[in-house]
């Protein structure tokens, strides 16, 4: 703790506000526009290691192979491989707490992707749950063009 005279110390309120733009690139744009327009989830396959990545990427980071053109259509169903329950509210979060954020491995993919799971009480969530994508009515040109996943009935 400070042992000096703190009578002159005070706190000034500040703010940092900056605009920015994110360019998704060709691979990222193809992924989102296909999702949005055809309601189809696409991955890319590395021919060297055989892995199917979703979300897609231009390069397999392990093999350093260019995989940008190796598109494969994936199922809109998959399995929860891990999850967490978000129990606090903040403006950057996509839902009001509590809600479930899960890592979902789509059928046909080798990598899981993060998304929201609804239609199940957070307290009943389990790994291994089979889920299915529910597409959004309104596009945001982001991964939230899948509105959420819900348990396969």
């Amino acid at each position: 703790m400070a042992t000096f005279d703190t009578s002159d110390c005070y706190v000034v309120e500040g703010k940092l506000a900056l605009p920015y733009t994110y360019f998704a690139g060709r691979v990222g744009s193809t992924f989102i526009t296909t999702l949005r327009d055809q309601r189809k989830i696409m991955g890319v396959k590395c021919n060297a290691c055989g892995k199917v990545f979703v979300p897609p990427r231009q390069t397999c980071e392990r093999c350093m192979e260019d995989i940008r053109n190796n598109w494969v259509a994936l199922s809109d169903t998959g399995e929860v491989v891990n999850f967490t329950v978000v129990r606090y509210d903040d403006k950057h979060l996509p839902r009001k707490a509590p809600f479930v954020l899960a890592m979902i491995k789509l059928d046909g993919a080798d990598t899981p992707m993060a998304h929201i799971v609804e239609g199940i009480d957070p307290e009943n969530m389990t790994e291994g749950l089979k889920v299915k994508a529910v597409f959004a009515d309104q596009t945001t040109n982001t991964i939230l063009d899948i509105d959420h996943f819900e348990p396969v009935k």
Partner: peptide
């Protein structure tokens, strides 16, 4: 080609 426009706005002290 998708372009997302955002503003980062953080309160500071």
């Amino acid at each position: 080609l998708l372009v997302l426009k955002k503003v980062i706005s953080v309160k500071q002290r």
